[in-house]
Nucleic acid binder design. Structure first.
Length: 470
RNA sequence: GGCGACGUAGCCAAGUGGUAAGGCAGGGGUCUGCAAAACCCUGAUCGCCGGUUCGAAUCCGGCCGUCGCCUCCA
């Protein structure tokens, strides 16, 4: 059983081998913090969270680094529009994003480097590139000399002529070659800047990631991730910088997630077709977003719609249902040993699917099989160690996918205060049912249902739960 | 225009050579005082055309359609 990962660099699935035995160094490109993050950002974070969780599950020690771009044109423009300090603006959205990551049940990274805290390293790297002629300065800016880099374009499989045709980047006069990109941008009036050998300025977009990787993970890393919209130019340029700097292959596996789409188009800030993480979480659970993403493959686009997220919400509830307590006392027998078999096959099937380039959709199908077996066993009165083991496995494997399988969080908290009253109504209703006063009993049940409290009469008494997050 | 991805039941979607996982929705049934939950049964020959093969959703070619990158972007 070996893990295979699709590598954008080679365009094929490759057996996963780490640089260092038992250890994985991974870097994932984080957001530019100038506005509220949307669920497309969440998708990327979730995809790499699962990759990280699965690697850890498989026994690797993972060092996970993801960055914040906290200085760039958009932040500056936004700050000027709103009259804020650009650093405060970036800090605000950085904090907010960290909160989102936590709300989305994404495991914290080992380090969250930011551009503004890496300036001196960045300057040193640019100087070094200058010494080897990979970089040249023009009017206070520094550019990377693409022509000097023989294998430039190997990630995106783009020839320079293709890239340059029809492209014209304003404000970068003086470049030797249209394809050259900025390592350091000379400061304009009123922009945040740092002193450098080339005068006041700030880092270009791509150099930050190269340097942060180098600084926090080393010259070579195992996995470099991000959205597939970063393949060109961002990751292409990162490779150019890093490998020109160290002379070594930068990242072993380049992993890219597909785009989240809304009404047939990529969700993005510039198009404006987005759902912020804020507004998403007000209506839906973090688990549902994961389920939506996992229903397909991480490299393919995912369509977001009210319909698709509702379906994901319901399928999450189905998984959750597998964790309901047993109702009987039978510990052994044919049904119990069948449950044990399904538990084992679900586990191996899950791993097999995940080993195949993180095929979450196939992996999930095994969880659903396990749920069905658990439900069947419960109905047959099974409890005891096999039942326990089955639920533990479900919880564990769902955990590898980062699914919490807890009841919808928001309303549950609000419900806490109402709990004694709901319990009271339920017990009154139970008394009514004992006297076969069905009409009255139904009235109570329907009345509670209006407030999203769903009653269920079982042989062991009546239970209730909160039906939906809305 | 260049590079790339995709097109599977009502919807989402796995499956890369041997007669199509799973989820949601729908229909029928069991259970239930009635419900709910659960369980059982129920649906597609895989965009179109041609080719390779004993055999293709899966390989090759063409066409149609959708999407991404080529400018900031997870």
């Amino acid at each position: 059983m070996t893990l295979n990962i699709y590598n954008t660099l080679t365009r094929r699935r490759e057996p996963f081998e780490t640089l260092e035995e038992g250890r994985v160094r991974m870097y994932v490109c984080g957001p530019t913090v100038y506005a509220d993050a949307h669920i497309g950002h969440a998708m990327s974070a979730i995809v790499f969270d699962v990759i990280r969780r699965y690697l850890e599950f498989a026994g690797y020690e993972v060092t996970y680094v993801t960055n914040f771009t906290d200085v760039d044109d958009k932040i500056i423009v936004r700050a000027q529009e709103t009259g804020q300090d650009p650093f405060e603006l970036a800090q605000y959205f950085t904090d907010k994003y960290l909160t989102h990551l936590s709300d989305l049940n994404i495991k914290p990274a080992d380090t969250y480097p930011r551009v503004t805290s890496e300036i001196s390293n960045i300057i040193r790297a640019i100087e070094s590139l200058g010494e080897t002629d990979y970089a040249y300065a023009v009017d206070g800016s520094v550019y990377f000399r693409v022509d000097k880099d023989d294998d430039y374009g190997k990630l995106s499989r783009r020839r320079q002529e293709d890239a340059v045709a029809g492209t014209r980047v304003a404000g970068e006069e003086g470049k030797e070659n249209e394809a050259d990109f900025a390592l350091w941008k000379g400061a304009k009036e009123g922009e945040p800047s740092w002193d450098s050998p080339w005068g006041a300025g700030r880092p270009g977009w791509h150099i930050e990631c190269s340097v942060m990787c180098l600084h926090h993970l080393g010259e070579m890393i195992d996995i470099h991730g991000g959205g597939n919209d970063l393949v060109f130019p961002h990751h292409e340029n990162e490779i150019a910088q890093s490998e020109s700097l160290t002379g070594k292959p930068f990242a072993r596996y380049w992993v890219h997630n597909g785009m989240l789409q809304l009404s047939g188009e990529k969700m993005s800030k510039s198009i404006g077709n987005l759902v912020t993480i804020d507004s998403f979480l007000q209506q839906h659970s973090a688990d549902a977003l994961r389920m939506l993403i996992f229903s397909g493959h991480y490299r393919k686009p995912v369509s977001y719609s009210e319909e698709s997220i509702e379906a994901a919400e319901r399928s999450t509830a189905r998984l959750r249902g597998g964790l309901r307590p047993p109702s009987g006392t039978v510990a052994v027998g044919g049904k119990a040993s069948n449950l044990r078999e399904v538990t084992e096959s679900a586990r191996s099937g899950f791993c097999q699917a995940m080993d195949d380039d993180f095929n979450t959709s196939a992996a999930l199908s095994h969880l659903f099989e396990l749920v069905r077996a658990i439900n069947t066993a419960r109905a047959a009165g099974i409890s005891g160690p096999f039942f326990q083991a089955a639920q533990d496995t479900l919880r564990e494997l769902a955990g590898v996918l980062g699914l919490s399988l807890t009841e919808p969080g928001g309303p549950e908290d609000n419900v806490l205060a109402a709990k004694p009253f709901i319990d009271l109504l339920v017990s009154v209703r139970t008394a009514m049912r004992e006297q076969k006063q069905w009409a009255m009993a139904d009235m109570v049940r329907d009345g509670l249902a209006v407030h999203a409290v769903q009653l269920e009469d079982t042989p062991n008494g009546t239970t209730w739960r909160i039906e939906d997050a809305r």
